[in-house]
């Protein structure tokens, strides 16, 4: 039994090497996280931008630079032209003794207030109050943590989708009939494929996490979390692979499922904690929660294990429901 699983697993591995998929499987996610990593400092240090002209004077312009990025123009017309562009940028010019804040008209209320507050602050002769800064916690940048969560989530589910397209290819090339007449049973087929999803998903997730987060996360928890999460990715892969008759239908089903797979975690990032129960029925929410426990560490160890347990149990329940259907579609005993 284990020999059959191992043989089938090794057959997949050799197929991956033959098709250069292993190279892409490792390289592409790494490339993606490198792009994210390159992008993170730009977002973290992003600030408001001001377009100014000569009329405000060099001293004012350099003081303005303490609050945001400055783009200098030679006339108020050029400043207006820039303010009229796609992004939100505050124009400041001077008309006699008065500063002129130039806005497009579609900016958020906070942008208008900020412009006035900054001018007041620059012109204030004495500081109005003593202000002290205290850094508390571990000085995290949540953009980095959430990027890591979404990247790892994507990596794990891509492995499931890759498996789906392997199943579709096996169906299209009739290889599935050869598997069907072999001694391999359906659950062994599923287990061998889960092994593949779990190993590749975990390895690539760890590499991605090392690039994005360095050594600031527990890799033991990530290893466990990725293995548990891969159970759901495997179920998604089986669902797509089982339902689709060809690659185009595979993509069509993937599109529908992706809507749920990626929108639920994205929604959970922005929704208030008391309303998180709205996401509880979605199994992928618990994958997100596993990763949140690993990368942000807001929950307890109990919460991590609870999320792992719910992910595994919900994957098994879906698999049991799918089993009769999969037997018909994949045609393995």
């Amino acid at each position: 039994m284990f020999k059959r699983i191992l043989n089938f697993f090794l057959r997949d591995i050799s197929g991956f090497f033959r098709d250069n998929i292993f190279i892409l499987m490792i390289l592409m996610p790494i490339l993606i996280v490198i792009i994210i990593r390159f992008f993170i400092p730009t977002v973290e240090t992003s600030s408001i931008s001001f377009a100014v002209d000569d009329s405000v004077g060099q001293e004012f312009a350099s003081m303005l630079e303490d609050y945001g990025n400055i783009v200098e123009y030679d006339s108020p017309e050029r400043v207006k032209e820039r303010v009229g562009g796609t992004d939100d940028i505050i124009g400041i010019t001077r008309d006699g003794d008065q500063y002129v804040i130039i806005l497009e008209g579609n900016e958020k209320e906070e942008i208008k207030e900020i412009a006035a507050i900054v001018i007041d602050d620059i012109l204030r002769e004495e500081p109005a109050a003593e202000i002290i800064h205290r850094q508390v916690g571990s000085s995290k940048s949540l953009f980095r943590e959430y990027s890591a969560i979404m990247a790892v989530l994507m990596i794990i589910f891509i492995q499931g989708m890759l498996m789906a397209f392997y199943i579709i290819e096996e169906k299209e090339s009739k290889v599935i009939y050869a598997i069907a007449v072999s001694p391999l049973r359906l659950w062994e087929y599923i287990f061998a494929r889960w092994l593949l999803v779990a190993i590749t998903g975990t390895v690539v997730s760890i590499i991605a996490s090392l690039i994005l987060m360095g050594t600031s996360v527990s890799y033991m928890l990530l290893l466990v979390g990725a293995v548990f999460s891969s159970s759901l990715a495997m179920v998604v892969g089986l669902l797509i692979g089982g339902l689709a008759g060809n690659q185009i239908s595979g993509i069509a089903i993937m599109k529908v499922l992706n809507l749920v797979i990626f929108l639920v975690p994205l929604g959970a990032i922005f929704v208030h904690d008391p309303y998180q129960y709205f996401f509880y029925p979605f199994p992928n929410y618990w994958v997100f929660r596993i990763l949140k426990n690993i990368f942000i560490g807001t929950g307890s160890t109990g919460d991590f294990w609870l999320s792992c347990g719910i992910t595994l149990v919900s994957s098994i329940i879906i698999l049991v429901i799918l089993l009769p259907f999969l037997k018909r579609r994949i045609q393995i005993r």
């Binding site: 992003s46 408001i48 800064h133 205290r134 000085s139």
Partner: peptide, 14 residues
């Protein structure tokens, strides 16, 4: 008056 800002995230000087 004296304000104290407690930050937990990385912030730019701007």
């Amino acid at each position: 008056a004296r304000f104290t800002i407690f930050s937990q995230n990385t912030e730019s000087i701007k």
